[in-house]
């Protein structure tokens, strides 16, 4: 089922949580809504589910306007961060709940509901746990049951709100791979919310990066990482270093020295240079480069992070060096970013 969010605005009291957000989700796609807390990602998910009503704008399921349809009518599967399982019901009853509450005409028989529950438990790799209560399961198992319960109603769209947020790192990684497999076998259109960029980049077909109630960029993992469209995306996805620069005569300047990077489509004036700390070339002599004094050096896993003070304004930037690189011993390092982007200063 395609989902189209069209110019949606959502206000809580008078505080706008979403400003004019539009998003097209293709049928069968796995989409991540990624952003810091307060970016409106959960609000957007809840709007799609019908747990909130938009202040303005429409949400279409296929061709139909679902904006004002009730939650029950929308037929979405929703998975909550804290599972929200019914703790007085067994696992099988939890999974079968959505079928049991259907009106008589469309309700499957008891045996059929039971069979579906068993089938779904096998799908989420928890065979044989039908008669357990949620309190008897681990966090990862509970979330699998929650997903099975959401899928039992054959939803048009599967929505997951920080599904792995309450789990520890190892279980998260495992469930991430597992969710991808489930998605590939069942083919549900799936939207999940996360603040974990690794999760979003690894799992999703497309990532929707959000900030302060707006969509900053929509794209594949490669798009958002390699071609960030805004300073926010550059800073939020992956590591980045920034340096205030000046654009003049199609050249970038730091403290009245050209740094050997030329640019054509940026107007003259103050700007900010963004680059990835590991995408730098170290230079020996500095005829047009960024040079700075080493003020700190830290070993981080397989690389060494060096903090430099650049120019008279003593701006600090961070770059990454291979562990054995001799430059780490020096007190002054010159480099030039291999890939970079300039955004005009706000």
């Amino acid at each position: 089922m395609e989902v189209r969010v069209s110019n949606v605005r959502k206000e809580f009291a008078t505080f706008p949580a979403l400003h004019d957000v539009s998003l097209d989700i293709k049928s069968g796609e796995l989409i991540a809504l990624l952003g810091p807390s307060g970016s409106g990602k959960t609000t957007l998910l809840r709007l799609i589910a019908g747990l909130e009503e938009p202040t303005r704008g429409q949400i279409y399921f296929g061709e139909q306007d679902a904006s004002h349809r009730s939650i029950q009518e929308r037929n979405v599967g929703f998975v909550f961060q804290h599972y929200a399982l019914f703790r007085h019901m067994t696992v099988a009853d939890n999974i079968g709940f959505g079928l049991k509450v259907r009106p008589g005409a469309t309700r499957p028989s008891k045996a059929e509901i039971r069979r579906r529950a068993t089938e779904l438990l096998n799908l989420v790799q928890l065979p044989g746990l039908e008669n357990r209560y949620p309190a008897q399961l681990s966090g990862g198992q509970r979330q699998r049951v929650a997903l099975a319960r959401a899928m039992a109603i054959e939803p048009k769209v599967l929505l997951l709100d920080e599904p792995f947020g309450a789990l520890d790192a190892q279980v998260r990684r495992e469930l991430r791979r597992w969710l991808r497999e489930i998605h590939d076998t069942t083919g549900h259109t799936t939207v999940f919310v996360t603040h974990d960029q690794e999760e979003a980049l690894e799992l999703a077909d497309r990532v929707v990066v959000m900030s302060q109630g707006r969509i900053e960029q929509v794209g594949t993992a490669d798009d958002v990482y390699d071609h960030p469209k805004s300073p926010f995306v550059y800073g939020f996805i992956g590591d980045s270093s920034t340096l205030p620069v000046k654009v003049e005569n199609s050249q970038l300047w730091v403290s009245d020295r050209p740094i050997g990077l030329s640019i054509t489509d940026e107007p003259d004036g103050p700007a900010t240079l963004y680059f990835r700390p590991h995408e730098v070339d170290l230079l020996d002599d500095c005829g047009g480069c960024i040079a700075g004094t080493v003020v700190a050096s830290r070993r981080v896993a397989g690389t060494r992070r060096v903090e430099l003070e650049i120019g008279g304004a003593r701006e600090r930037v961070e770059i990454e060096l291979p562990i054995e690189h001799p430059a780490a011993q020096k007190s002054r390092i010159a480099f030039r970013p291999r890939r970079w982007r300039v955004f005009p200063s706000a």
């Binding site: 019908g50 979405v76 929703f78 019914f86 509450v101």
Partner: peptide, 22 residues
């Protein structure tokens, strides 16, 4: 937990079913 009620609603339960069963 309010989420439990919301979960029941997304699964198609009406208000009465949510109260009596959940």
């Amino acid at each position: 937990d309010k989420e439990v009620e919301e979960a029941a609603a997304t699964l198609g339960a009406n208000r009465w079913q949510t109260i009596s069963r959940v």
